[in-house]
Design a protein around this nucleic acid. Structure first.
Lengths: 212, 212
DNA sequence: ACCTGATAACTGAATGGTCAGTTATTAAAA
DNA sequence: TTTTAATAACTGACCATTCAGTTATCAGGT
């Protein structure tokens, strides 16, 4: 049961300054997702990352800093990327909307980062600055993008006169819900839920609902 | 600053066996909402309820039992009530759908229980049986109701042929999102968000999207 | 009307376990 | 040999839970 001395001596540990931070974040994401931020233990994060607790504190100031780093590295870049693509999009507003929602949908269906909104939501009360960051960098930017797409569609007569700030939220709601579902209730399901079908139906119903 | 001896002697404490449990639950809801279940302190719950820590344990086995009680007493009855009303609803499927969504919307906009989904979501990993209860008693029942309404609408030719299990989720998504928003980001907003407008727009877009 | 014990609601200090963060030490790498 | 990544034992604070003691309430006696 105990590791042999050979294994011990051969394995031991290596110095891998470059690789540690990302490995720690990867491990933290899994632990935070499983237990929630407050109940996740730094020792478990460390073990999963293949180091000991002390090592984490060489790279991160404290537990909160690990969560902050996760939020920063995970989502911010994605959003900017989508916004950039949307800016030089050639097609109509409907096509652009379809493209944006499909992209976000794919992210939510496949990325392990899709748990983050849930983790952040849960800790809202305890870390006001993380919430503010998330609100400004992710939500406001995302809603801003969608609002402008819809406003454009309305201006061009593609969409009827819906309130853009409400319509933008209608666009993301089912996708976000899918993210929560996948990271919370999916394990209880006997057969996997058809997220693709949900998102397709969503885009379909939405565009018809927006049509003049 | 200190309470006068008179006040002290008059106040002290009273025996209020009947009132305690609900007062404790009320206090717990607020504390759990603010800090999250894991970070909420029983002592703070007690103080808010006007008792001391020990008293809570006269009425509840432990912290988890308080959360369980909250889930049971808060939402279950609401759902059954809506379902009962829906069952003998006279009008068309659209009218029924509008009625159901308006009712849920009103609950989410006004009730302090609207935080519960968030609290439960956050603790999913730690309390599998609470999640299972919530899943079976709230989600499955709620989705079941909406699915049957939509199926009826499709059968009667009021709605086009949308997939009922997806469409049902589209119905609740924006309302749930509103609940999360109200209990998380609303405090950051300078002016209050127009939930009523969101829900009205939602119902409007949705029914047009469902129309043949 | 006024005691007076019995009962049960309630208190709050003590307990014990957990865990974030620290530090003295070890050993890989340069 | 020196530097520093990494370890592992340690500390201290925090907090759920317990329980021995306190006090409101009430019934039955005087």
């Amino acid at each position: 049961m105990l590791p042999t001395t050979v294994e011990r001596d051969l394995a031991r540990w290596q110095r891998r300054k470059e690789a540690r931070p990302s490995e720690i974040l990867e491990a933290a994401l899994i632990e935070f997702a499983e237990k929630g931020f407050a109940s996740a233990r730094m020792e478990d994060v460390a073990r999963r990352a293949g180091v000991t607790k002390g090592t984490i504190y060489l790279y991160f100031e404290n537990k909160e800093a690990v969560l902050k780093a996760l939020v920063r590295e995970s989502i911010g870049s994605q959003i900017s990327h989508v916004i950039a693509q949307a800016e030089n999009f050639p097609g109509s507003a409907s096509e652009l909307l379809r493209f944006v929602l499909t992209t976000i949908g794919a992210f939510v269906r496949t990325s392990d980062r899709a748990v983050l909104p849930k983790i952040i939501l849960a800790e809202a009360g305890n870390f006001p600055d993380i919430i503010r960051f998330y609100r400004e960098e992710i939500i406001d930017k995302g809603l801003g993008l969608l609002t402008s797409v819809i406003r454009r569609g309305v201006a061009r007569g593609e969409f009827r006169d819906v309130a853009p700030q409400h319509a933008a939220r209608l666009c993301v709601a089912p996708i976000l819900l899918a993210a929560f579902w996948r990271t919370t209730f999916a394990p209880l399901d006997s057969e996997p839920y058809d997220y693709q079908g949900l998102i397709d139906t969503h885009i379909d119903v939405l565009l018809r609902g927006f049509a003049p």
